[in-house]
């Protein structure tokens, strides 16, 4: 088959585009997560239209009295929201630095029964510093870990 000279670059671009579209679709399906605030998520749970089959990312305040740390099992339990209306979270991994100081967090994972099982935990610290940074932790080692400092992370401090 002879392809005209003009059509060839177009064809090449199409091939690359198709490959990219495929890669991106795969990437999205692997790692996309719905993002809600805890209030939004709780009301969706109540009304039954939370996408429970999907990966979820929920942000909210940590209920201070709810924090339990079980070092033997490396298990951290706490609740997001406000006392009385909150989402129980379990996270397997080391307890992040400054967790006891943290006021709010972002968790990523899935709902298992009534509990949110997080494989990623990111903190925002109550800091007097404007520059103070959220800290993150993760079980997988691929994500941020127990340091209160992603702001100082690569690139970030320079951008402030």
């Amino acid at each position: 088959m002879k392809i005209s000279r003009r059509a060839r670059p177009l064809l090449g671009a199409l091939v690359i585009l198709a490959a990219m579209a495929y890669l991106m679709a795969m990437g999205v399906s692997k790692s996309s997560a719905y993002y809600y605030t805890v209030e939004e998520f709780l009301s969706r749970l109540q009304s039954g239209n939370a996408p429970l089959q999907q990966r979820l990312r929920v942000s909210g305040d940590i209920v201070a009295s709810s924090v339990q740390w079980h070092p033997k099992a490396s298990e951290l339990r706490f609740a997001l929201g406000e006392a009385g209306r909150s989402l129980p979270v379990v996270y397997h991994g080391a307890q992040p630095d400054n967790f006891t100081h943290a006021t709010s967090a972002i968790v990523e994972g899935r709902m298992v029964g009534q509990v949110f099982v997080a494989d990623k935990l990111m903190l925002k610290c109550p800091s007097k510093y404007e520059a103070a940074a959220p800290a993150t932790a993760a079980q997988q080692g691929k994500a941020r870990s127990p340091r209160s400092d992603t702001a100082a992370g690569s690139g970030s401090a320079g951008l402030r």
Binding site: M24, K30, S31, S32, Y35
Partner: peptide, 8 residues
């Protein structure tokens, strides 16, 4: 809001 992570 849907976020994508490092795997993407």
């Amino acid at each position: 809001e849907i976020t994508v992570g490092p795997p993407f």
